[in-house]
Amino acid sequence: MSLRHAILVLLQDQEASGYDLAREFANSIGLVWNATHQQIYLELGKLSEQDMVRYRHVPQEGKPDKKLYSLTDAGRAELVRWLKKPAGPARIRDAFMVKVAGGALADTQVLLSELDTLAKQRRERLATFEALAQRLDESGRDENVYNYLTVRRGILDQRAWLQWAEEVRHSLEHRSADSTAS
């Protein structure tokens, strides 16, 4: 998957500004794909040059004109082409997992502290996803089934990570207690 396809997915049903897209990355598609404002605007420029999106200027009082982007026929065709291809395996890049793997050389208290910080972030993300799922449920899950399914995956991922974190905590605390008793 590439950033271009994530943007095309977000534009499939409605036009949006770069700011709107960045907000969607933070709130929804960010469950599965992260991008900075700069990356989004850069990719929008490329998509525009390749005639996959077009934009219209919307005048704003006291601010520069806003650009609202929408899919072109070429963009929709690219999205459909990409959707037909099988997805490759997900790539995982998790620095904390690497730290746990190298934990024999690490300070257990430092690992536990970082685990606490990450667990707090995961609990906050879980709460956000659960609230989003509830809103999708209230507005009609069937009408938003694809968004709902994506959010459910996010919920399950967060819960699984938090369960794993408890196992890590238990193991590290047990290891720490054993080493102090020796």
Rank of each mutant, 00 (worst) to 15 (best):
M1P: 00
S2P: 10
S2E: 15
S2V: 12
L3M: 05
L3P: 15
R4P: 07
R4Q: 06
A6G: 10
I7W: 02
I7E: 09
V9W: 01
D13H: 00
A16M: 13
A16Y: 04
S17W: 14
S17L: 13
S17M: 13
D20H: 00
L21G: 04
A22D: 02
F25A: 00
A26Q: 05
S28M: 13
S28V: 08
I29R: 12
V32E: 12
W33V: 03
N34P: 03
T36M: 10
Q38M: 05
I40S: 00
I40Y: 00
Y41T: 10
E43A: 00
L44C: 02
L47F: 06
L47W: 13
E49V: 00
E49D: 08
Q50H: 01
Q50F: 01
D51S: 07
M52A: 09
M52G: 02
M52L: 08
V53E: 11
Y55K: 04
V58W: 01
P59Q: 11
E61W: 05
G62S: 11
P64T: 10
K67T: 03
L68S: 07
L71Q: 11
T72R: 06
G75A: 01
R76W: 15
V80M: 04
W82S: 12
L83T: 10
L83D: 04
K85E: 14
A87E: 09
G88M: 09
G88E: 12
A90N: 06
A90W: 04
R93G: 04
R93V: 14
R93N: 09
A95T: 06
V98C: 03
V98P: 00
K99E: 15
K99F: 01
K99Q: 14
K99R: 13
K99N: 11
A101E: 07
A101C: 03
G102R: 06
G103S: 08
A104S: 08
T108F: 07
L111T: 05
L111R: 05
S113L: 07
S113Y: 09
L115T: 00
L115A: 04
T117R: 08
T117D: 11
T117G: 02
A119C: 07
R122V: 13
R122E: 14
R123I: 01
R125Y: 05
R125K: 10
L126C: 05
T128H: 11
F129L: 13
A131I: 02
A131R: 11
L132H: 05
A133D: 15
L136S: 13
D137G: 01
E138L: 15
S139Y: 02
S139N: 10
G140F: 06
D142W: 03
E143W: 05
V145F: 06
N147K: 04
Y148V: 08
R152E: 15
R153V: 15
G154R: 01
G154V: 13
D157Q: 00
Q158R: 03
R159L: 12
R159V: 11
W161C: 01
W161F: 06
L162Y: 08
L162T: 09
Q163L: 15
Q163N: 11
Q163A: 11
E166R: 01
E166S: 07
E167L: 13
V168R: 02
V168N: 06
R169N: 09
H170F: 15
S171T: 07
S176D: 11
S176W: 08
D178V: 10
A181Y: 03
S182K: 05
